[in-house]
Amino acid sequence: MKLIYKGKTKDVYSLGENEVLLKFKDDVTGTDGVFDPGANTVGLTIEGVGKSGLRMTKHFFELLEANNIATHYVSADLNEVSMTVKEADVLGKGLEVICRYRAVGSFYRRYAAYCEEAQKLDALVEVTIKDDERGDPVISEDTLAMLGILTNDAYQEVKALTQNICGLIKSELAKKGLDLYDIKLEFGRNKTTGEIMLIDEISGGNMRVYKDGKYIVPLELERYFLG
C-alpha cells in the first residue's frame, strides 16, 4: 500500500483500482485537551476511539446503503481498524458540511446575541472550508458558486443529501435515547462516475450527542449506541 495522506484522525493509503484504505487512529480533534468535533487541530488521544469510530461508521454507512444513499463505503475490517472505500475527488479543496439541530459549539459562539444555548434548530446546514490556516471559515452558497467551488445546483444537492442523511442518523440514535445536536459530514465526487457521495466517516468524533441533557463523549457514545 502507498501512503497518500496522513490526516488528523485517519491515514489514507492507495489500494489501486480506484479504491483507498482509511486507517483509523485514536486521535480526536479539540483544543487544550477538550474534544470538539468542529476543531481543526488534534486535541487529545483516547485509546480505542479509532475502533469505536469505525464500528459506528460501519453501522451508519450500511444503514445509508440500505436506504439507497450514495457513499464511498466498500467494507470495514474492525481487527485492522481500517475501511476500504471508493476513491473520490473532494469538493473544492475540501469542504465540511454541518447539520445543526441545536445551537451549540461554534454556532452558539457566533450567534449568541440571537439565540439561547442549545436552542432547537431545524436541520440547519452550514458549509465550512477545510483550511486550518484560516480557521475553517463558514462559506455561503453564493460565495461557493462565485468562486467556482460548488454550483448552486450542486450546493442544493449536497444540502438535501445532508438533511436526508442526518435525519436517518438522528432517528437511529433516538432509538437508544440519544439526542443528536450537530454532526459534520464530508462529500466528494465518485472518481469514476462523478456522482456526489458521502465520504469520510460517521462516528462520535464528528458529532455532538446528548443523553438526558448530558453530553456523551465519543467512546461512551459507541458503547451506548452499539452495546
Rank of each mutant, 00 (worst) to 15 (best):
M1F: 05
I4E: 09
I4N: 06
Y5T: 09
K8A: 11
K10F: 08
K10C: 10
G16I: 08
G16A: 07
V20I: 12
L21Y: 05
K23W: 06
F24Y: 15
F24D: 00
D27H: 11
T29W: 00
G30C: 03
G33K: 10
G38K: 00
N40A: 10
T41W: 01
G43E: 08
V49H: 08
G53P: 11
T57P: 04
H59E: 11
E65K: 15
E65H: 10
I69C: 04
A70F: 06
H72F: 13
Y73R: 05
Y73K: 02
V74W: 05
A76E: 14
S82V: 06
S82Q: 14
A88L: 13
G92D: 04
V97R: 01
E117M: 14
A118H: 08
Q119C: 13
Q119N: 09
K120W: 01
V127G: 01
D136W: 10
I139S: 05
I139M: 09
S140A: 11
S140I: 01
E141F: 05
D142N: 15
D142H: 01
T143P: 00
L144S: 06
N152Q: 07
Q156P: 03
A160M: 04
L161V: 03
Q163P: 01
N164M: 05
A174S: 15
A174D: 14
K176A: 14
L178V: 04
I183T: 15
E186T: 07
E186W: 06
E186M: 06
F187P: 00
G194Q: 14
E201G: 03
I202Y: 04
K211V: 03
D212F: 03
Y215W: 09
Y215N: 10
L219T: 10
L221E: 06
R223W: 07
R223E: 14
Y224G: 01
Y224W: 12
Y224L: 08
L226F: 04
G227T: 03
